[in-house]
Amino acid sequence: MLLGLLIIGIILSAILAITAKRLLSSAIWLAGVSALSAILFYLLGAREVAVIELSIGVGLVTVLFVFAISIAGDDAMDAKPLVPRILGALLALCLTALMGWMVVPSFLSGVPVPEASSTDILWQVRGMDLIVQVTVIFAGVLSVLGLLSEKILTLPAETKGGRS
């Protein structure tokens, strides 16, 4: 019951995030999606993921969005989408039905198996994932620095003429 209410809340927040006119309210509804899914993670037994989702999904990503919107401006664009809205909705509906048909029955054939603790799995079985994560974070920091620093991007001649 509670799980159903939470998932309905998540879907409603997601729809509001997609359809909101202002970018800022869109970001806030996205934070709502993250917060509700953190509660859902906790109820499903995934406590570590709940904490990480709450701190990263609700905290860091929202701050990133607000920062980007404050730089780029909150202009509401009403331009026509590249795919017509009705066709897009139909495609999304078909894909949802297909996914539901394939995913939902597989949830019923689960056989519980004993397993190691989550820290053991994270540090020993999936150590490769951690290395990949570190690499991705490093690459991400470098590319964000490269994208946001104007001195590297603009040529020296441009900076003399353009920015004085």
């Binding site: 998932i7 997601a14 995030a17 859902l40 664009m77 809205r85 495609l91 999304a92």
Partner: peptide, 20 residues
Amino acid sequence: VAAGVCILAGVGLYGLMATR
């Protein structure tokens, strides 16, 4: 929850197609 996840993915796909 599984059905809701599928609907959520559908909402995300629609959002990907419906905006520029």
